[in-house]
Write a protein that binds this DNA or RNA. Structure first.
Lengths: 222, 222
DNA sequence: CTGTTATTCAATGAAATCATTGAATAGGAG
DNA sequence: CTCCTATTCAATGATTTCATTGAATAACAG
């Protein structure tokens, strides 16, 4: 076989894979599916797409073998096709944040809108605090996602329940909120609310999937 | 700011980055630039593009901050914008080979065309052989690339010179050829030629950039 | 079986990507 | 300054991507 023909084929095949990732909606879907399986309807609702549109994007992800399908009664649940799909997404995300000043700015602007100085701690720091029992950890995702797996000792306090839950929290300890990932806004809103009420609060920069990826302690059914 | 608007912005920005990667020519350019800086003319020649077309693709890579530009006399040299660009490319490549059976097949078919049973060894194995001095390592890339950096103790034997070089090689030791990366075909052709002439030969699956990425010993001007 | 619900499919038009062509620039050589 | 060469730019048409719409499937409930 011709050398050039061979290379054309190889890079074209790889480009197909990358093309399947090269769309904002599909990236968001992958980010969401890192939490676990979701139905088309749920995916559409979470990402603000019409169901038909979500379905189409899911087809292209499926054709690229990035997601897998499982029928569950009347529903069809999509999941990431493997650990390495999430790993690649994280790699792309980090590259984007490092090289695309615009993306980094969008995030920091948004955070500034939520509270004057947002305290951010990374997974490594939180792991240390957890070990020394120096922090209360709040999982502010929907309870369903908490039930699928969460940081060891984290409490499930979905954002809607936080206001009612406030008085149960200690004022002296640091309250750390986390949610799905670095782009998830629940944690930012939780921290803002906590601070308004005089608590010491911070958000973990990453989300649950990153925590698990790094091998820190989790509680998980499976 | 609206939550959905924020997410749209973030994922759109990231998708721009991924879109810049989502093209066979641009992937090949990144693979090539992993060897070091090249001029537009060289890039066009190596990848089989017209100069104008290569230039356009380089512009989109530049706009995404994936490559950097440096003027050198009359020429303009493009380089990868950082270590992590190569890391991401490797991640995407691996994901592609793992999830896209078609891509894996194209490669294995091509290798089968070169020799009955292609002996492949990975960087880890070669590192062990190198340490025990049990292999002769041939760098079959163009000499210019060898000069920029190569595996410790590797000999520069560009493919064209291999036939003339044959008699200097020992028949008892294993001869390991490597080139730019897993898609580089020089090494396959070198191994085929070596085997035809009764040598024990294998190719290292990865290329020089991967070897360096993994932290194995290199000789390098810097 | 019939009706219901979740999902997919097919068709459409708007927008973006791509390769080619030929002209424009910008810097070095003489 | 003028010529030369490497690179970029602008315009064109072909192809692909994308969201929307409404119809088609496929599995479950009764």
């Amino acid at each position: 076989m011709n050398k050039r023909l061979f290379k054309d084929k190889v890079y074209t095949e790889l480009a197909k894979l990358v093309k399947a990732l090269a769309n904002p909606h599909r990236l968001e879907v992958i980010d969401l599916l890192a939490q676990g399986p979701f139905s088309v309807e749920q995916i559409a609702a979470y990402t603000g797409m019409s169901v038909a549109n979500a379905s189409q994007h899911l087809q292209t992800l499926k054709n690229a073998r990035l997601v897998t399908v499982a029928r569950n009664g009347n529903f069809i649940h999509y999941s990431l096709a493997g650990e390495n799909v999430f790993d690649t997404w994280v790699e792309l995300r980090n590259l984007g944040l490092a090289h695309n000043a615009e993306a980094a700015k969008v995030i920091s602007d948004f955070r500034k809108g939520k509270s004057r100085d947002t305290d951010l701690i990374d997974a490594e720091t939180l792991a240390r605090l957890l070990q020394k029992e120096q922090a209360v950890i709040l999982d502010v995702r929907p309870e369903e996602e908490y039930n699928r797996g969460h940081i060891h000792r984290a409490l499930s306090v979905p954002l809607e329940s936080l206001a009612a839950y406030l008085k149960k929290l200690p004022k002296r300890k640091l309250i750390v909120a986390y949610c799905r990932g670095p782009f998830c806004v629940y944690a930012d809103e939780a921290v803002a609310l906590l601070k308004e009420n005089g608590y010491k609060a911070a958000r973990m920069e990453e989300g649950f999937p990153e925590w698990r990826q790094k091998g820190y302690p989790v509680a998980q059914v499976s």
